[in-house]
Design a protein around this nucleic acid. Sequence first.
DNA 1: ATGCCCCCGGTTCGGGGA
Length: 262
Amino acid sequence: MKKIATWNVASVRSRMEGLGNWLTKTAPDIVFLQEVKATEESFPFLEIKGMGYNALVRGQKSYNGVAVLSKEPLEPVLENLPGAGEEEARYLEVKDAAGVHYISVYVPNGNPSEKNPQDTSKLEYKLRFMAALLERVQTLLADRTPFVLGGDFNVIARDTDVYNAKAYEGNALMLPSVREALRKIEYSGVTNALRLLHPEPFLYSFWDYRFGAWEKNMGMLLDILYLSPAVADKLEASGTDSFVRGEANPSDHVPVWCLLRE
DNA sequence: ATGCCCCCGGTTCGGGGA
């Protein structure tokens, strides 16, 4: 069995204790991280090595940043998503010795800043990014490359993936254009590892730090693991590690994981 | 239900997150 997880850690350096506890407790083989908010120079490679994991990092100062942790060494394939620009660290594709690709992705949020509520440039970037991601998925599928694509997609795919859909009307997390972009990826032929086995409504991976959201269970499902067809055939189990949201100094996201037969 | 929180850089606040 191989366990693969994705987790938006919301600043890896400030989350080391929780990350270590979670790795020890759940023992994933491969972990996709998002929002590490560190450069390669400042990334805590040594501490993570001490936890038993190698790390490949596409870093950036202050913002974004993605990584893949693994017990067995992996090798890099792409450090940027083709067609999405190279300014922001939101994509890292690596592969194992068997040729399976592992992709950690952090899709842009897409909402305007509070100071410029009419600004649509961030939404346009999100849609461009998702279109480029669709292209990459289609290429991998056409090549019959086995892969796991996981990350924070920043999309509320269905009204029942959020505590109150009405409150988020017009939000870039669930605009029709954004949902359509996600559906194009899903309908290209990948399998949602969590949803295939757990279709129930109000299953969340994110609870805002504000509003007492965790205590009131005001959450959203934003994190996804997509499997290529050959990998999906090996899916044994999946879930969310929501317990970490209740621990000290947590990320606002929790890990989503799947278990694959060898 | 957007203000509430949290992190970063680098200073005592602004930007970003969702």
